[in-house]
Nucleic acid binder design. Sequence first.
DNA 1: GGCCCTCCTGCAAACGTTGGCAGGCTCGTG
DNA 2: CACGAGCCTGCCAACGTTTGCAGGAGGGCC
Lengths: 347, 347
Amino acid sequence: MREESARSERRQRHASIVDVAALAGVSPSTVSRSLRGHENVSPATRQRVADAARELAYTVSPHGSGLASGRTGTVGVVVPFVTRWYFANAVAGAHDALHAAGFDVLLYHLGDSPSRDRFFERMPLARRVDAVLTLSMPLTDAHTLALRALDMPLVTLGARLDGVSSVRIDDQAAARSAVHHLLHQGHEDIAMITAREDDPGFGFVAGADRLQGYRTAMAAAGLPEDVVTARTYGIEGGAEAMTRLMERGRLPSAVLAEYDEVAIGVLRTLRRSSVPVPARISVIGVDDHEMASVLDLTTVAQPVQEQGALAARLLLDQLDGQAEGPVDLVVPTTLVVRSSTGPPSQS
Amino acid sequence: MREESARSERRQRHASIVDVAALAGVSPSTVSRSLRGHENVSPATRQRVADAARELAYTVSPHGSGLASGRTGTVGVVVPFVTRWYFANAVAGAHDALHAAGFDVLLYHLGDSPSRDRFFERMPLARRVDAVLTLSMPLTDAHTLALRALDMPLVTLGARLDGVSSVRIDDQAAARSAVHHLLHQGHEDIAMITAREDDPGFGFVAGADRLQGYRTAMAAAGLPEDVVTARTYGIEGGAEAMTRLMERGRLPSAVLAEYDEVAIGVLRTLRRSSVPVPARISVIGVDDHEMASVLDLTTVAQPVQEQGALAARLLLDQLDGQAEGPVDLVVPTTLVVRSSTGPPSQS
DNA sequence: GGCCCTCCTGCAAACGTTGGCAGGCTCGTG
DNA sequence: CACGAGCCTGCCAACGTTTGCAGGAGGGCC
């Protein structure tokens, strides 16, 4: 009791716009206009207001402002797993661009499929944000419906959505270029490891496209497909899938992993089984994960932070009303050859 | 013109609490109370309100609510670099705990030292959040002052701050236990690589403590110190520092890295120089980074997501007024022995 | 049957800002 | 000197909730 009242007394209320107005000797409206550099405010007034605001350490209340203007100054960034390299980097890129433009970032870390469903059902974004950025998520129809219903600027990263701007790489081409690299080195027995294609609960939505690229490239070369689907995502998934691949008896001469984390899992299994890379088997991934350089993993690199920033920029354009309609930005990838790939063994 | 008016017409305004009230045949106050399950509302009314709200797809406006109640339902999470494994995991842990408690997470990705300063000067957190969680950041006095001035619940992760609750590991003990492991294997020539100790712009604030732990353990064993400071953080820093260490001519028999990413950089340099690990040199880190298992890196593991969740819980307790005063939660670490450490070579 | 208490509900006043509207002042021009 | 055109500025009505206060209805107890 006693303590509580003491505490609430000590907690000095924030200065409000009327306090600033009083101190500056003007009306609240003038303060509002002045502080936002809006319309025509005389330099003298502007100065007085600025001084008063600084003296009172005034910050505009997002609630008051949001209520009156209908804008929140906040963008929602929706991501399945921040802990994964790709997402963390995309979030960082997007955050920095948005923050620089004066927007706050509300992070929604969705996790697995069921929590994802719950999220889209409750749609907590409704009135909290001005725009939404979704990162490479496998979206069900219900999800996209919920997103569209928000009726606000929307950009997707790493995935296509009808009528929505997006930033991504050409996943099919990336996979093809990986396959071509292997073909070029003389491989003919190339397996692909995908991450849970059928139940996309955890996967990158890009998986299907990369698989398609692999198929196209193999078919064009007249070679048979060999696809293994990991039972879980990331390193563990790759490790487990590679184990299964080895248990089949006959080892392919090269493996294309859907993304680098899978490839890293593959490498771990191979090392533990003392299968030499690339002497006995070549491994290639997609992403150019931070660790690829450490593990000497050959990979098809994509610029992740840049894509995040690009997506943010698209969002900002839409918020400015500058946007011409949805665009689909496809950024280039580059093959980074390291020593996890090489010519197949003679045998 | 035409288009625009068409668009704004189509954009159906959100249902407000008075719409719900009208539909349910009650007053807005009753809707408010009912929806928050607050005071006593008759079951019949509660049901009618719930139905009306569902029918209109009503969501409370955070702005209206925030303005009236003074609460934001939002927690600010401040992090230097989300792209780093430790931070991404801590953010994930904290987010999930906060989200489960009904809070939104405003992410502030600060980056390097200058942007950090700018952030704390402008203090955009002021009226947007109910509480703040800062993740292992080296905070200057100006920073902590700005944080305290917010006068709201505050928790730090991976760092101590006077009068503020914190969650962390015992960094000195972690480093000591790493050194003891090496001593136990017979090493006497143990170097430590720290990440930019003097200018903590990028580093974990824990670095100083880990260094201290190393010093204490070495002194207790009667062995001389050998400290190398990396010029940048993470993998690249570790790689570069190891290069310098090798250029000195005499190689230590073991290296303790301030954290796993540094150790990973060390391993990269060693592999590229064909220095066998652990035959010629042992390497140990701290964290148990996701990649440690892939690289067979011996390390002192700490539970990162759990610490994030724990920190969130502390924050929630403070928001509930349950907190007894600041606590300093120290979670245990475990030595995970893999094959990057072994007895020193006979030579 | 009357009185008091409890339970439920409505009223109205905040909360802090924005933006349309209108009015006053100043300055330039004829 | 009069008139018109800008510039600046203030007034006021939102925006959507929460919450203290008060009042009405219904039920239990004597």
